[in-house]
């Protein structure tokens, strides 16, 4: 298993921080992509941040009321080692299938 850290993104245009209002997930919990993770408040608005990926939550940073700077760790996920990159999927290991048979008269000269 590998750990992937997700830092707080810029939630507006040029915002530098956000305040945690309430965590919607907890360590140990399995989350899906786009599942709401946390309620945050910025100087512009309050919002729910969706999960950038599926995985098991290992750590969350910041209790309600704490301020986190953009770029600092927000949440850490545990994912299987064979999780694909950001683009594409891991090819499945499938048993080889065939329709074509070979036929040949081989002269072993």
């Amino acid at each position: 298993m590998a750990e992937i850290s997700f830092p707080l993104p810029d939630l507006g245009e040029g915002l530098i921080e956000a305040t945690v209002l309430d965590w919607l997930v907890e360590p140990g919990q399995q989350v899906e992509r786009n599942q709401p993770l946390v309620e945050l408040e910025t100087s512009k608005s309050a919002l729910e941040l969706p999960s950038p990926q599926a995985g098991k939550v290992v750590r969350i940073h910041g209790a309600p009321g704490d301020t986190i700077n953009v770029g600092e760790p927000l949440i850490v996920f545990e994912v299987p080692d064979d999780t694909a990159g950001i683009v594409g999927t891991v090819p499945k290991d499938e048993a080889p299938k065939r329709r074509v048979r070979l036929s040949a008269v081989l002269d072993e000269d």
Partner: peptide, 14 residues
């Protein structure tokens, strides 16, 4: 894929 490669082999064999 597997079948296309097998076809290629067959073309050479025959």
């Amino acid at each position: 894929n597997i079948d296309r490669i097998l076809f290629g082999i067959q073309r050479v064999l025959e």
